[in-house]
Amino acid sequence: MKKALIFLIVFLASSLAGICSAQAAELDGNAILRQVDKNLQPQSYEMYRKLINVEPDGTKKEFVLYSVKKGQDKMVALFLSPASEKGRSTLRLGENMWLYIPNVGKPIRITSLQSVVGGVFNNSDILRLDYGSEYDAVSITREGDTYLLQLKAKTNAIAYDSLKMWVDAKAIVPTTIECYAASGMLIKTLYYKNTKDFGDGLVRPSVLETDSPLYKGYKSVMIYAKVQRKKLADEVFSLNYLARVDELR
């Protein structure tokens, strides 16, 4: 009887622990995603990025962008270089995106899948919002020093239907992300590299590389610099302000 009682207690305890562990794993996926977003960027900040498109023969084309972001769904990027792109700015409010070209003189709506600069990065990569605002974690597994998160887009308005995200378990920053279309086709792979201290407690990868089976032999690289907190008015993220983004620098 005593043995039976001990067995029952142990059985119940392990079952309960198992249930709790399964629930924790489910909760942890989204919690880790939130932590990833927090570790990659402050809630309201500015940054400079250099974007390099590398062709199979090694030819490079480079772009420099200044960006500001506020909250989970507001972002603006301004091209500083090369001269042919200078003054172009793109605004994202949730799933709405606009492009302002100085010569055209008015913002036009663009789609997230288009690429303003050519190459492997598209508009949604350049104006990327928090991962947690666009995706839900549907599963999480531990693979050595990394977590593998399976992420599913919250709506069909998101550029990629699902992501596989490998996260450094210690630093809680992504290392590799595979982006898939709804058909299951791999669209591109993102590689986060070169962790750097940007100051003010922000330690995150400073390089993002991408390649795509759709652009065989091509590669695009994004280098981050001067990522820092900045107070921004909501009105900065509006069509009427697009021509004035340079004032924020």
Binding site: L93, N103, V104, A233, E235, F237, S238, L239, N240, Y241
Partner: peptide, 30 residues
């Protein structure tokens, strides 16, 4: 050639912008 530069007109303009958090996200008057 709809994207080419054009000549402007001389005048005075005032631009006011206000952002909101509800279904009306932006209101602007030019």
């Amino acid at each position: 050639n709809p994207e080419e530069s054009l000549e402007g007109y001389i005048g005075a303009g005032l631009d006011l912008i206000k952002s909101f958090s509800g279904p009306l996200q932006t209101l602007a008057l030019t």
